[in-house]
């Protein structure tokens, strides 16, 4: 097998959960934070620790996820966090609208001109950047384990049992089956082109030229796949595909633990909506302990 899934069976609580439970729970947390626009650290922090606990319970080895985490850290801390710190935008208007003590100014100057201005870094913007980073990590911690912990063979069944049509679910199932074959075809094509003197590692020229030079690598596999497709269509039509509802080999059933996690996800979503819309709790504010601490530095 030339392409391997990141999935590996582990005897963990997370992997014993039904895949539908995992997906529905992740969406519940994303919706709980985004629909009622929760920016209060007293809600975000417990949810962050809940996500972190579930992530650690998945027992994914660090060497498997190291590259992913480096990318996520760069994205969340340097792009999102730094942007929040400088601009204070991307959240509620109270971050920049309410008066807040200035910690220091960052001079920004347009290169080769005298045009420039000072960007004030306030206590409010600093707390907002920290809140936003935590909020994003809360959601990311639930998304990252999915490919490592859900068996690729049950995605089709999971989506069918979540309400997708037979055809859509079968498309997904078929895609998973085709994937190793096409990965093998790509590698064989690359080797065959190398034998003819095509050096994929040494593409030179301008960007259009370098993209054009990728064609000998892409075209043979794509064209062969269109021919394969016709054969598969004939085989499926001969078996009367799509004329009646189909049955699925793999069956999924909810266990008690699934109902518990689903109930927890639903309760978190409802609680966030009720707290925000019913009691006005969950909006953005800078806690006093943070203001005192950072101004005392």
């Amino acid at each position: 097998m030339l392409v391997t899934w990141k999935y590996r069976p582990r005897n963990t609580f997370i992997q014993r959960l039904d895949p539908r439970t995992r997906l529905i729970f992740m969406f519940s947390i994303i919706l709980a934070l985004t629909v009622p626009e929760i920016w209060d650290f007293r809600i975000i922090l417990p949810l962050f620790f809940l996500s972190l606990t579930l992530y650690l319970m998945a027992r994914i080895e660090w060497k498997d996820v190291r590259r992913v985490w480096i990318f996520i850290f760069i994205l969340v801390i340097f792009i999102v966090g730094l942007n929040g710190l400088l601009s204070g935008r991307g959240g509620p208007s109270s971050v920049t609208n309410l008066p807040s003590p200035v910690l220091f100014n960052v001079p920004i100057k347009i290169p080769f001109t005298d045009i420039g201005w000072d960007v004030p870094i306030t206590v409010s913007k600093t707390w907002f950047a920290l809140t936003q980073i935590t909020r994003m990590f809360t959601m990311t911690l639930l998304a990252i384990p999915i490919p490592y912990t859900i068996d690729p063979n049950i995605y089709g069944t999971a989506f069918r049992r979540m309400g997708a049509s037979d055809k859509v679910s079968f498309t997904m199932d078929l895609a998973f089956r085709f994937l190793p074959t096409f990965a093998r075809d790509f590698i064989i094509t690359m080797d065959a082109q190398r034998a003819r003197g095509y050096e994929i590692e040494k593409l030179n020229g301008g960007i259009p030229e370098r993209l054009r030079k990728l064609a000998p690598f892409i075209i043979p596999v794509v064209m062969q796949s269109t021919v394969t497709g016709e054969e598969v269509i004939d085989a499926m039509d001969l078996r009367a595909f799509g004329t009646a509802p189909r049955t699925w080999l793999k069956q999924l059933t909810y266990a008690l633990r699934d109902y518990f996690i689903l109930g927890l996800g639903f309760a978190i979503f409802v609680a966030c909506c009720v707290l925000k819309w019913g009691f006005g709790f969950g909006g953005y504010f800078v806690p006093e302990f943070f203001s005192n601490w950072i101004l005392g530095l």
Binding site: F170, M172, D173, A175, S225, G229, I233, M236, G242
Partner: peptide, 17 residues
């Protein structure tokens, strides 16, 4: 059937590439 099969092939190629 055609859309199901080519949807799957397109998805697999897009994923692999």
């Amino acid at each position: 059937t055609r859309q199901v099969v080519y949807g799957a092939i397109g998805a697999a190629l897009y994923g692999v590439l």
